[in-house]
Amino acid sequence: MHEVSLMQDTVIIATKQARDAGAQRIHRIMMRVGALSGAVPETLEFAFDIVAKGTMAEGAALDIERVPIRCYCAACAQEFEPADFVCECTRCGQPSTDIRRGRELQVTSLEVS
């Protein structure tokens, strides 16, 4: 349940960027959240409403792009999306530690005025 901390940091990053750009309000925050990021999108949304209160992001929409896990198998020279959180190659079954996507936890853009 560290999503409140994460959203607090998100709002801090967003309001600073918006202010630096001369904006008065944030209408939308777009995020990218990987399946292996350790954060739950629904919980982030819930936390956002709480932490945005009283900031220029209050009432803003939160768009979360969910990023599935993509691993790479060197033996098969293929990228694959594992069925669960375990990166076993869908072709040869060997475990992989080369995780290419799925760890994202980012603010990608803001809609401001």
Binding site: D9, Q106, T108, S109, L110, E111, V112
Partner: peptide, 19 residues
């Protein structure tokens, strides 16, 4: 003036845990 400032998009691409 704020009545006619349109919404605009700021691109960030920032990691939330970067601090």
């Amino acid at each position: 003036p704020e009545d006619h400032t349109a919404h605009r998009t700021l691109s960030l691409e920032r990691g939330i845990l970067e601090k």
